[in-house]
């Protein structure tokens, strides 16, 4: 199963479980239905001297071909509903207490992430802001505060099985708990303009020690920010003697 996308969040296996349940049930009925169609198509194919019958579906025997499958399929539906309800409840209706908070801003066509700085609080001047580069600590509950600067985007981390639209003017909270350190893909999953396909980012899941080291390095100026204010040299303007004398 290694060629499937890895699942590295606390609820990835639950969501995959639903996926496989749906695939198995639908797959079963697909094969049964196609099998019957093909079997009948062969069995009742055109034969010399046999006239085609006009079947109106009025007898109970004929109607049973509709109603029995309907009942069975609705039962499968119920099965899926029950299985979904608990996962939905745990993933979308429950908000475990945050260990860390991250601000996620979607814009055409990049993701901007605000990390709590050394003070452990979001929305303070020491926040670490990066473009397309999200860092989180393994086995910690991460709350993401999703916003958009311009149009609809969708913040999607396939390995976390996390996907949520970002909507201009709204702030949406989501959560995930990464379980395996590594570097994974982040994408935009909602067509958002010309550059939508280039709106990819990266999430680095790391141990607390690595995360602290990263934060220290950023704070010390070996910054993750390409455009961070430069410690620029003293102004080297042309000497004043070049002032045109009028």
């Amino acid at each position: 199963m290694n060629h499937w996308i890895k699942g590295v969040s606390s609820y990835a296996a639950d969501i995959d479980g639903l996926f496989w349940l749906v695939t198995a049930l639908i797959g079963f009925w697909f094969i049964v239905a196609q099998g019957i169609v093909i079997y009948f198509a062969l069995k009742y194919r055109r034969k010399e001297g046999v006239k085609a019958a006009y079947i109106t579906g009025k007898t109970w025997r004929e109607l049973s071909w509709v109603f029995i499958p309907v009942v069975l399929v609705v039962m499968c539906d119920g099965w899926i509903d029950v299985a979904t309800a608990s996962v939905w409840h745990n993933v979308k209706e429950t908000l475990p207490t945050a260990d860390h908070k991250v601000g996620v801003m979607g814009q055409q066509w990049a993701w901007t992430f605000s990390h709590e700085g050394p003070d452990g609080k979001l929305g303070t001047p020491d926040d670490i802001v990066t473009v397309d580069d999200l860092h989180v600590v393994v086995n910690k509950v991460i709350h993401v505060d999703l916003q958009s600067k311009d149009v609809l985007h969708s913040f999607s981390i396939p390995v976390m099985r996390f996907k949520q639209d970002t909507i201009p003017g709204r702030s949406i909270t989501g959560w995930f708990k990464p379980t395996v350190p590594g570097v994974y893909d982040v994408q935009c999953a909602e067509i958002c303009g010309l550059g939508h396909g280039y709106m990819a980012a990266r999430i680095t899941v790391q141990t607390q020690a690595d995360y602290d080291a990263w934060m220290k390095a950023v704070a010390a100026g070996a910054t993750a920010l390409p455009g961070a204010p430069a410690a620029s040299p003293a102004p080297a303007a042309a000497p004043a003697t070049q002032v045109p004398q009028k």
């Binding site: 390409p226 455009g227 430069a230 303007a237």
Partner: peptide, 27 residues
């Protein structure tokens, strides 16, 4: 002037920074 363009990774852009942020206001 506001550090949005020109950084230690962009030395050419960095040449502009002291010129328009520091020297020009002075002149």
């Amino acid at each position: 002037r506001t550090g949005v363009r020109g950084s230690v990774k962009d030395l050419e852009g960095l040449r502009m920074v002291p010129m328009v942020r520091d020297a020009l206001p002075l002149m």
